[in-house]
Design a protein around this nucleic acid. Structure first.
Length: 273
DNA sequence: CCAGTATCCTGCAGGC
DNA sequence: TGCCTGCAGGATACTG
């Protein structure tokens, strides 16, 4: 679930409902995740600090602490952040629980454990290997210029390149599929054999699909976070993802589905070239 | 440097 | 019904 729009939605909700909150307790267990979850360090570094603000970089979420340091979070494939009353039952696979003001808890739930939560010293933000390697922010740069530039000379399928976080940060499997469909470009096509004009069209499609998803997330989830606190899911209007075998919304041909870059890929054989 | 594959982990849908 | 297989919104360490 968590690609750029989902992470941005979570960020906005946290900004609204948790910024300024002080961390009173840190609970959970030290377990293996994408990076080890170290409860001792998190407790030592978080207790007593306020969550001053929340930023997003690609699919990463940064909680800025009142002492200038940070909590770096990634949701992996199955990660969810939930803001819930301490009295409510914790879901299975709740790995980290931050006790905040007013008996509210910020909970990290992640069954597959591909996500992580690590404390990051102020100076390490620019040096952190995950963050340092990230490419451009698709909604904060002139993607019409940048996307063709970062794709220049590459020969892999466009689908694989869109998923490469070192080029553009934040696009995941759903939005890669959706953007290629919108742009009318075959996911296996290489940028080498794609005109500049069509790459610009792809950039426009990427920006549009991400922007719309952020807007939808924002409107759907809005104020949902207070009592129930679950901001894991929201409706996104998808044209092709998960719809292999169904008619293309644009031309009616049957959508094809096959793995490309080891990820499930859906495209219209008639109008994506 | 680049492209492609294997791998970490749990849950669940679908086939038999 | 139960068992088994494959697949799932990600990132990275490999190999060639």
């Amino acid at each position: 679930m968590p690609e750029l729009p989902e992470v941005e939605t979570v960020r906005r909700i946290l900004e609204r409902h948790a910024s300024g909150a002080r961390v009173h307790t840190v609970d959970g267990a030290s377990i293996q995740m994408r990076r080890p979850l170290d409860l001792d360090t998190l407790r030592l570094r978080l207790v007593g600090r306020q969550l001053a603000g929340f930023r997003r970089r690609g699919k990463y979420l940064l909680a800025d602490l009142s002492d200038g340091h940070h909590l770096l979070l990634h949701l992996g494939m199955s990660g969810r952040l939930m803001l819930q009353p301490a009295s409510t039952e914790r879901l299975r696979h709740t790995h980290l629980i931050l006790g905040l003001n007013g008996a509210v808890e910020l909970r990290l739930v992640d069954p597959r454990r591909f996500g992580f939560a690590v404390w990051l010293a102020a100076d390490d933000e620019a040096r952190d290997p995950s963050l340092a390697a990230l490419g451009v922010e698709p909604l904060a740069t002139d993607l019409d210029v940048v996307l063709p530039a970062v794709l220049r000379g590459r020969t892999a399928p466009l689908k694989a390149l869109l998923l490469d976080q070192r080029l553009v940060a934040g696009i995941g499997n759903i939005y890669a599929n959706e953007a290629l469909w919108r742009a009318g470009i075959h996911p296996r096509r290489s940028p080498r054999r794609t005109s500049h004009e069509r790459l610009v069209r792809l950039a426009t499609a990427v920006r549009a699909v991400l922007t719309e998803a952020v807007e939808q997330g924002g409107t759907t989830i809005r104020d949902f976070a207070t009592p129930e606190g679950d901001f894991g899911y929201f409706a996104v209007r998808l044209a092709v993802y998960g719809k292999g075998g169904q008619p293309c919304p644009r031309c009616g041909s049957l959508l094809r589905e096959a793995p490309i870059a080891n990820r499930s890929t859906v495209w219209c054989p008639a109008c994506q070239r």
